[in-house]
Amino acid sequence: VTLFVASYDYEARTEDDLSFHKGEKFQILNSSEGDWWEARSLTTGETGYIPSNYVAPV
């Protein structure tokens, strides 16, 4: 399981994006799509795309 933590807050801009807060942890589901990764929030359980430059490895 690949875990990352949010370095910043992010507000979703499309329905496919995932909003999150600094400190929130994610399981990365797919990182092969470039700068936007499909992730599941371990806080909310929601799945969506997050900007990879807003998160760091745990």
Score class of each variant (00 low, 15 high):
V1P: 12
V1G: 12
V1W: 14
T2V: 13
T2H: 11
L3Q: 07
L3K: 04
L3W: 10
L3Y: 12
F4N: 01
F4T: 03
F4I: 03
F4V: 10
F4P: 00
V5F: 06
V5G: 02
V5H: 04
V5A: 06
A6D: 01
A6R: 00
A6E: 01
A6G: 03
S7G: 09
S7H: 14
Y8H: 11
Y8I: 08
Y8Q: 12
D9Y: 05
D9G: 06
D9M: 04
Y10C: 05
Y10K: 02
E11S: 10
E11L: 11
E11A: 11
E11P: 04
A12Y: 03
A12M: 04
A12P: 04
A12T: 04
R13A: 10
R13D: 08
R13L: 11
R13G: 08
R13K: 12
R13P: 07
R13F: 08
T14V: 07
T14E: 08
T14I: 06
T14N: 14
T14L: 09
E15K: 13
E15C: 14
E15H: 11
D16M: 14
D16E: 12
D16T: 14
D16A: 14
D16L: 14
D16K: 15
D17F: 15
D17A: 15
L18P: 00
L18D: 00
L18W: 04
L18N: 00
L18Y: 04
L18E: 00
L18M: 13
S19K: 04
S19A: 06
S19E: 03
F20Q: 00
F20K: 00
F20I: 06
H21E: 09
H21V: 14
K22Q: 08
K22M: 08
G23I: 01
G23Y: 05
G23H: 04
E24L: 01
E24D: 14
E24K: 01
E24V: 03
K25L: 15
K25I: 15
K25H: 12
K25G: 05
K25R: 11
K25C: 12
F26C: 04
Q27N: 06
Q27E: 14
Q27D: 07
Q27S: 07
Q27G: 02
Q27R: 07
Q27W: 14
Q27L: 14
I28S: 01
I28T: 01
I28M: 03
L29D: 04
L29R: 03
N30E: 07
N30L: 07
N30M: 07
N30Y: 06
S31K: 13
S31L: 10
S32V: 10
S32H: 10
S32F: 10
E33S: 13
E33F: 12
E33H: 14
G34L: 11
G34H: 12
G34D: 13
D35N: 09
D35T: 09
D35Y: 13
D35V: 08
D35F: 13
D35I: 09
W36R: 14
W36K: 10
W36V: 06
W37I: 05
W37G: 01
W37K: 01
E38R: 08
A39D: 03
R40K: 13
R40M: 14
R40F: 11
R40T: 14
R40L: 14
S41V: 05
S41D: 04
S41Q: 05
S41K: 12
S41F: 03
L42D: 05
L42G: 03
L42Y: 06
L42R: 00
T43Y: 09
T43R: 11
T43W: 10
T43V: 09
T43E: 14
T44I: 00
T44L: 02
T44P: 02
T44V: 01
T44R: 03
T44Q: 02
T44D: 03
G45R: 03
G45C: 09
G45P: 00
G45F: 07
G45S: 04
G45L: 06
E46T: 07
E46C: 12
E46W: 08
E46V: 09
E46F: 11
T47Y: 08
T47K: 10
T47M: 09
T47N: 05
G48A: 02
G48N: 01
G48C: 04
G48M: 03
Y49L: 14
Y49N: 07
Y49P: 01
Y49W: 15
Y49I: 08
Y49K: 13
I50V: 08
I50A: 01
I50D: 01
I50M: 02
P51K: 06
P51W: 07
P51N: 09
S52V: 09
S52F: 07
S52G: 07
S52N: 06
N53A: 14
N53L: 10
N53Y: 11
N53R: 13
N53H: 12
Y54K: 08
Y54M: 13
Y54L: 14
Y54E: 03
Y54N: 04
V55R: 02
V55K: 02
V55F: 08
V55G: 03
V55L: 12
A56I: 15
A56L: 13
P57Q: 08
V58N: 06
V58E: 11
V58I: 13
